[in-house]
């Protein structure tokens, strides 16, 4: 069984981002970039299934600039077998990414896609669901547990009301939530080994991504909150809450 794991190069989750003064986006100059944390979890899930003998090959895919090879190499070092890099400087929107991935799934004849539920830069939470739709596959989003057996995946999902369990026929798209696992650390010797793992470069022009797009008009800072004040006692807190008519 072959798994495809899409990953994205994003601003590291520890970085406090800065909106550019002219409103044209977020300043990425000299900012630390990493693998989207949900994608690391997705790859870890695929690797665990490989260790359990369920999956035989894990292929990591990224769509992005030449520099995104760093992120692909780091997931190869974590344990993926092979990488595919769709190289482009263009900004790719979720429906376009889903179309590229759908084509790669067909070329690779993959049986399951395990993806992060969303990228922490644009927070769209769309690509896995769109990919499943374009392939006419089932989806199990926001997974906190995955079991694969007998051509079916049983997936526990995190939902607003608690948890639910879905059974989906394979092939399927599964998107990873935070509590699915804790990705293993990448060891130095594995980073060296990953440099020799196969990595194919693919041109964006091989894909049909001519779909309607959204335009970003401007990027701004979120409205700031008024500064607050410290109170010394419960009495003072209760008085302040009563003042505001909250209790």
């Amino acid at each position: 069984m072959k798994a495809l794991v899409p990953i994205k190069r994003v601003v590291d989750y520890n970085v406090r981002i800065r909106v550019k003064g002219d409103g044209t986006g977020v300043d990425l100059n000299g900012v630390k970039m990493s693998v989207n944390p949900f994608d690391e979890i997705a790859n870890e899930a695929a690797l665990k299934l490989k260790e359990a003998g369920v999956i035989s090959e894990v292929v990591v895919v990224t769509i992005g600039t030449a520099k995104a090879e760093d992120q692909l190499r780091s997931e190869l070092a974590r344990g993926a077998d092979r990488g595919i890099h769709v190289v482009t400087d263009e900004e790719i929107q979720p429906l376009q990414a889903a179309r590229i991935l759908a084509e790669l799934v067909k070329r690779e004849n993959a049986d399951v896609v395990i993806a992060g539920k969303q990228a922490i830069d644009d927070d769209n939470n769309q690509t896995p669901q769109m990919l499943a739709t374009l392939l006419d596959w089932p989806q199990a989003t926001f997974a906190s547990d995955i079991k694969i057996d007998g051509g079916k995946a049983t997936v526990q999902r995190e939902i607003d009301a608690g948890a639910e369990t879905l059974e989906v026929d394979l092939p399927a798209v599964i998107s990873a939530d935070l509590r699915l696992n804790e990705p293993r650390f990448i060891k130095l010797p594995d980073i060296m080994k990953a440099k020799r793992k196969p990595l194919d470069k693919v041109e964006l022009s091989e894909f049909d991504i001519d779909v309607p797009k959204l335009e970003v008009v401007s990027t701004s800072n979120p409205p700031a909150r008024e500064p607050g004040r410290m109170v010394k006692s419960v009495e003072e807190l209760v008085a302040a809450l009563k003042d505001k008519g909250l209790v």
């Binding site: 981002i17 769309q126 959204l214 970003v216 008009v217 990027t219 701004s220 979120p222």
Partner: peptide, 29 residues
């Protein structure tokens, strides 16, 4: 395409939505 997480309406087809966990806001059309 889809506009995820509409937080403000600027017209029939123009909206604000949060990015980077709400640490920035994109106005999209």
């Amino acid at each position: 395409p889809q506009v995820t997480d509409i937080m403000a309406v600027h017209g029939e087809r123009e909206f604000d939505r949060p990015i980077y966990a709400g640490n920035a806001v994109n106005r999209v059309k």
